[in-house]
Computed example of a mutant assay.
Amino acid sequence: METDPTRVAMVCVQNAGRSQMATAYAEREREARGLEDAVEIVSGGTHPAESIHDVVREAMAEEGFDLSDRTPREVSDSELEACDYVATMGCSTLELDADTDVRDWDLEDPHGKDLERVREIREDVRERVEALFDELEADS
């Protein structure tokens, strides 16, 4: 019997920093844990920026992620309501239907921060994504 994949969304206002970091780590975790068919990842912003913040691209490149081909995108409430989990990055004004598990990770916005501070935010994002995937694995 095939089951629908668990849908996980990484969302912030601009989809140019925290949610892009979270998405990259989520994709890596999904692959490392062999969950490619079990977990679908959605990334977006409520008011997307033109491009990913340069300092975020630089910090993620240090971890082996190339975000140069990614573009912030808008995400709709209906798209998010189709998700099982929605992680907002500290900027949530979302009010979704009751079946969606919304978690506000309350992360500092890396925009305008120096590289050292962005590295700290990046590590916080990585830890939260790993914990979420630990939970997804335990539930499956």
Rank of each mutant, 00 (worst) to 15 (best):
V42W: 05
L35K: 14
E95S: 12
A82R: 10
A138P: 05
D106S: 14
V55C: 02
E58Q: 14
F65V: 09
T93N: 12
P48T: 09
E116V: 12
I121N: 01
A49R: 13
R117W: 02
R73Y: 02
V118D: 07
D104E: 03
L132P: 11
G44I: 04
R117A: 15
R122Y: 06
S76C: 09
D37H: 13
E40T: 10
E116S: 13
D84I: 06
R119V: 05
A82C: 09
C91N: 01
V42C: 05
E127K: 10
I52G: 03
I41G: 04
E116Y: 03
L94I: 03
L96Y: 00
A49M: 10
G112I: 13
S76K: 06
A38P: 08
R122Q: 12
D139R: 14
A32P: 06
D69I: 00
D77L: 11
G64D: 09
R18S: 04
W105T: 01
L132G: 04
E40Y: 03
V55Y: 01
S19W: 06
E95H: 08
L132E: 08
V75Q: 06
M60D: 03
R122G: 00
V86P: 02
R117S: 09
V56L: 05
E62W: 02
S51T: 14
A32E: 14
I41R: 07
R28D: 12
E127N: 12
I121C: 06
V86L: 05
A26R: 07
L115T: 00
D134T: 08
E135K: 12
E120V: 10
H53Q: 12
S78W: 01
V102R: 00
A98R: 00
E50K: 07
R122F: 03
G112M: 09
C83H: 08
S43Q: 13
V42F: 14
S19G: 03
E127H: 11
E81W: 00
T46G: 11
S51F: 07
E62V: 01
C83G: 09
E27I: 04
D66C: 08
E81A: 00
H111A: 15
V55G: 00
M21S: 06
M21F: 13
H47I: 10
E63T: 04
V102A: 01
L96F: 01
E130D: 13
Y85R: 09
R122L: 02
M21I: 09
Y85T: 04
A26Y: 03
I52E: 03
V42E: 08
P72V: 05
D104M: 04
E31V: 15
